[in-house]
């Protein structure tokens, strides 16, 4: 599913990060561990095609990510990769349903309201489908961002510190949702975190030094 080979990235400041080769198989659930500043976000951006590494090769499925043109890469990301960020961020001017339809449109897929409702329902957010982002709590917003990440049935679901701003109960719930949704949508899951509470939920771990 994911394969990175001799990937390294040099920041404009000159600081260089070297990433160990990594092989992830279809449907696996991985934990990406590392202290803050160890390059978790950088690696996630490289994996999702947001940041071109200075060296090395990144393959998602059979696709060599950085051989794609910028436009194709954007489309590929929209269709194949779902991303959940640390802070749940939705477009404020659109309601929940529209935010999800937006994800379908930008990925170049036809709008499918049934799929939107199905996903919202699986996350118990269906009653809020016409609400605007500012009407929702942090925990509810996080659910919607998970819904947005899986709406296009991506092959890869990536979460960047999804629990760091949540209390124990919510952290546990979000983690369970991510695992559940990745199983439900047959997506490979990678969760990047420095949150020790998350550790026990995963058996496969890639650690950044």
């Amino acid at each position: 599913m994911i394969s990175i080979q001799s990937v390294s990235h040099q920041y404009t400041s000159g600081h260089q990060l070297q990433f160990a080769d990594w092989q992830v198989n279809n449907g696996e659930q991985w934990l990406l561990l590392g202290q803050s500043g160890s390059g978790k976000t950088t690696l996630l951006h490289i994996l999702t095609g947001l940041l071109t590494p200075t060296h090395g090769k990144v393959k998602i499925g059979d696709t060599d990510l950085y051989s794609l043109s910028s436009k194709k890469l954007d489309a590929f990301r929209g269709q194949q990769i779902g991303i959940v960020f640390q802070k749940p961020h939705l477009i404020k001017s659109l309601n929940i349903t529209e935010n999800l339809l937006l994800a379908q449109s930008f990925a170049g897929l036809p709008n499918n309201k049934k799929r939107v409702e199905e996903v919202l329902d699986s996350l118990n957010m269906l009653p809020k489908k016409n609400a605007y982002p500012q009407e929702l709590s942090q925990g509810q917003l996080q659910r919607v961002t998970i819904a947005r990440a899986v709406i296009n049935k991506p092959t890869l679901l990536i979460a960047d510190e999804p629990t760091s701003s949540l209390d124990d109960k919510n952290a546990e719930a979000v983690l369970a949702l991510l695992k559940e949704q990745s199983t439900l949508n047959q997506a490979t899951l990678v969760v990047a975190t420095h949150d020790k509470r998350v550790k026990d939920a995963f058996t496969l771990t890639y650690t950044l030094s």
């Binding site: 999702t48 947001l50 436009k71 489309a75 590929f76 990301r77 961020h89 937006l102």
Partner: peptide, 16 residues
């Protein structure tokens, strides 16, 4: 800017 970045992660191209 963050909204626009999110749109890019959702598959919107620069041209869009």
């Amino acid at each position: 800017s963050y909204d626009l970045a999110i749109m890019r992660t959702l598959g919107a191209s620069k041209g869009k």
